[in-house]
């Protein structure tokens, strides 16, 4: 049995996981997880690469403990090489190199976006490409044609703000809290999503690209024009964010299915933090059922950033004989390229 260690520090969370070569998750620890925080003393994560330095050793310890393993039992070390924030990537990379060097273990760098594509494999091992993937989070909004594992074509992406970023910024602007995704999703349940009409940007432009900056501005302007009494009207604010969500989800669903038609595929995989959004899940499923298309969503802990998906992706490349050397460096703008 092979044990694969996966490390991801591409953004705010320190993530370490261990899987085996049958894609069984033995442990999956993320620094912002409530269980971990309780253990660690309830510290709220900050936006700082130095935080990874503080969290990583404990996250690693917890991952080993949960898997009932020691570092000696690890057979392969995989780590996110990019894209992400350089300072954060460096710390994950440094940890991975240290473990690999000290234990004389093979080392493999993984593309974070490709990792998101592999998350689905951990729960649905039966899924075989081709499929269209929508990766949607605070930092990403990408439509990717997965012709085969290792063979990808980027079909579309955002030209300005990511979808999750629009959620966060609107939520913060309206003083609803952070993170915006789950808050707006929750407030929108049962609200009138047709009370306001927002254009989601690039809706009918014929491309598979997105633009959420204009939608964000439209919502902000709409709120600013409200009277003082209206601004205090909780129902009205719920309708406002529900109307925003309706537009955002509409363009995500429409473009993903358009991509599917273009490629002639019959499966869709959704990943990234926004894949946890209930409205997006509902609309994707509805549209899928209408068209006889299977739509797959990973469970929440595998939608958001995690080390298990990095391990799964690294395992695939390792089996193909790929290895990285000690002078591998993080790349904040690492592109998703095919290895086939």
């Amino acid at each position: 049995m092979i044990h694969v260690l996966g490390i991801d520090t591409s953004c705010d969370d320190s993530c370490v996981a261990i899987i085996n070569d049958e894609h069984k998750i033995l442990s999956n620890v993320v620094s912002s997880q409530t269980e971990f925080h309780r253990h660690f003393g309830g510290i709220v994560p900050e936006v700082a690469s130095r935080k990874h330095l503080e969290y990583l050793p404990s996250v690693l310890d917890q991952a080993l403990k949960d898997a009932h393993l020691t570092l000696r039992d690890v057979d392969l070390v995989t780590v996110t090489q990019g894209p992400g924030l350089l300072g954060s990537l460096l710390l994950g990379m440094c940890l991975a190199k240290t473990i690999a060097l000290v234990g004389d273990k093979p080392l493999l760098g993984v593309n974070h976006l490709e990792g998101h594509l592999f998350a689905i494999r951990l729960e649905y091992p039966e899924i075989q490409p081709p499929f269209v993937a929508l990766i949607v989070s605070g930092g990403h909004t990408e439509i990717i044609a997965v012709e085969d594992w290792g063979k990808y074509y980027l079909l579309g992406s955002t030209r300005d703000d990511a979808a999750g970023e629009a959620y966060d910024k609107i939520s913060k602007f309206l003083n609803l809290g952070y993170p915006g995704g789950p808050i707006i999703d929750h407030l929108s349940e049962g609200a009138q999503s047709n009370r306001f009409h927002f254009s989601a940007g690039l809706e009918d432009d014929g491309t598979l690209d997105f633009s959420f900056s204009g939608l964000k501005t439209a919502v902000v302007r709409c709120y600013s024009r409200l009277g003082e009494e209206e601004k205090k009207d909780k129902e009205l604010i719920r309708d406002l964010v529900a109307s925003f969500q309706e537009s955002a989800v509409r363009v995500l669903v429409n473009k993903t299915f358009r991509a599917l038609e273009m490629k002639g595929f019959s499966q869709i995989v959704v990943g990234g933090g926004v894949a946890a959004n209930r409205h997006l899940r509902r609309k994707m499923k509805e549209e899928g059922e209408k068209r006889g298309v299977r739509v797959f969503f990973p469970s929440l802990s595998l939608c958001t950033d995690n080390g298990a998906m990095i391990a799964a992706c690294g395992l695939f490349h390792w089996k193909k004989g790929e290895r990285d050397s000690w002078d591998m460096e993080p790349d904040p703008r690492l592109p998703l390229v095919s290895t086939e």
Binding site: C11, L85, G139, T158, R159
Partner: peptide, 13 residues
């Protein structure tokens, strides 16, 4: 290149 919002990534080069 297309300039995208760095709000999440904090810095783009």
């Amino acid at each position: 290149e297309e300039i995208k919002s760095p709000s999440f990534s904090l810095v783009n080069e």
